[in-house]
Design a protein around this nucleic acid. Structure first.
Lengths: 196, 196
DNA sequence: TTGAAATACGAACGTCCGTTTTGTACTATC
DNA sequence: GATAGTACAAAACGGACGTTCGTATTTCAA
C-alpha cells in the first residue's frame, strides 16, 4: 500500500475512534486492530502516541473546516453567512461527521485538566479559532447594519456556542432530537433579538 | 482505621481524581497511591472498578446537591430561588468543588458514546434530574407570575444550562474569568427577557 | 487470655499499554 | 537479475492495568 494512503486511512479511523473514546483513551493497539494492521505498522507512520494524537487533532480540524467553516464562505458575508454557520454546525452534528459527536468539545473538556497531554494546546487553539470566527462573523453583520450596533460580538459567540453545547448534553442524555429543536429555537431567538 | 472513614476518604479522593482524569480514566492503582494504600486495600472496599465508579458518581451527586441544590431551598420559591440556583452554580464552579470543573458535564460527555461503562446511566440520570430541577423552578416562577406565562420552561432550562456549559469551555481555554463574566451577563439577560 | 472478625498489605496473575527490534515480503532502480 | 529501500508483520520489552489470594496486623468480645 502506498505510504500516504495508508497513513490517511489510519488517521481517518483514529479520528473517529478518538471522538468516541477520547483523545487520551485512544490506543495504538486499538487503531491497529481497527485498520487490520500490526502495532508496529502504526508506529512506522507515527513514532509516538503523542505524534499520533497531534496528527489526529490536525486531521479533525481539516474535517471540521471542510464540514462547517469552508462551505459558509460560498455565502454572502454578514447575517446570511452567520446563519449558514449555525445551519452547517447542526448538519455537521446530525450527520455524525464524528462518531462521538463534536470532536473538539469532547477533547477540550477531556483534556482541560490533563496538563501532560501535548495535544491539549492544539485542541484549545482550534477551539479558540472557531469562537473567533463566530465573533468575526458577528462583527461583519454589525458593520453591515444587520445586527444591532450595541451588540457585544463576544457575548454573541458565547450564547451561540451555548446552544451548540446544549445539543451535545441533550445528545448525551439520549434526547438528541429534542436538543436540536431547543437549540434551533434558541439560536433563532438569539439572532432575532440581535437583529438591528 | 475504621471501615467507614476509610471508605469515605477513598471515595472523596476518587471523586476528585475522576473529575480530572475522567470516570473511565480513573485507576485503582492511582487512587491507592493517592490515599497511601495498597491496591488490595481499595479492592476490599470496592470489589470491582465498576462498583468504585458507581460509588464515585453517587458521592459526586451528594457533593453537588450539598453545594448547589440543597442551599437554594432556604430561599423563597419562585424567581428568587431560581436566581439562587444560578448563583450557587457559579460559586460551585469557581470554588473548585471538583478539581476538574463540573464533574457531571465532564462525565456525561466522556461516557455518552461508551456503552460499556455501567456508570453511564447513573451520570445521565443525575444530569437529567438537574435539568428537571431548573425546569421545575421555572414553572414555579411562571405560576407566581414572576416569569412570562408563555415561557417554555424546557427551553429556559436549555438556555440557562447553555451559559453554564459556556463557562466550562472558556475554562478549558484558560479564560475562566471572562467565561464567568459572559455567563453572568447571559444569565441575567435570560432572566430579564423571561420576566413577566 | 483466647478466639474471631475486621482491615489492609504485598505478591502474583493475566491482559493490555507504548515502544523497539527483527524479519520478510514487495517494488523500483540499476 | 542483483540490489536497495519501503511497508508491514511478528515478537518481545518493561510497565500499568484490574483482580485475586494468602497473610499480617489490629480490634473487640468472651
Amino acid at each position: 500500500m502506498a505510504r500516504d494512503s495508508s497513513r490517511e486511512s489510519i488517521l481517518d479511523r483514529a479520528v473517529q475512534m478518538a471522538s468516541v473514546q477520547g483523545l487520551d483513551g485512544l490506543s495504538i493497539g486499538g487503531v491497529a486492530a481497527a485498520v487490520a494492521m500490526s502495532k508496529g505498522g502504526i508506529c512506522a507512520h507515527f513514532p509516538s502516541k503523542a505524534s499520533l494524537q497531534a496528527a489526529v487533532v490536525e486531521r479533525a480540524a481539516e474535517i471540521f473546516r471542510g464540514a462547517v467553516v469552508d462551505p459558509i464562505f460560498t455565502r454572502p458575508p454578514g447575517l446570511e453567512r452567520l446563519r449558514a454557520l449555525t445551519d452547517a454546525w447542526f448538519v455537521y452534528l446530525s450527520a455524525e461527521t464524528f462518531e462521538g459527536g463534536c470532536f473538539f468539545t469532547n477533547a477540550l473538556l477531556e483534556l482541560d485538566n490533563l496538563h501532560g497531554v501535548e495535544a491539549r494546546g492544539a485542541v484549545a487553539g482550534q477551539y479558540g479559532r472557531y469562537l473567533d470566527l463566530i465573533e468575526r462573523l458577528a462583527v461583519e453583520a454589525i458593520a453591515r447594519g444587520e445586527l444591532r450596533a450595541d451588540l457585544d460580538p463576544r457575548r454573541f459567540a458565547f450564547e451561540l456556542l451555548g446552544s451548540q453545547l446544549g445539543v451535545l448534553v441533550w445528545r448525551g442524555l439520549g434526547k438528541t432530537e429534542e436538543g436540536f429543536a431547543l437549540a434551533r429555537a434558541a439560536s433563532n431567538d438569539l439572532l432575532a433579538r440581535s437583529a438591528a
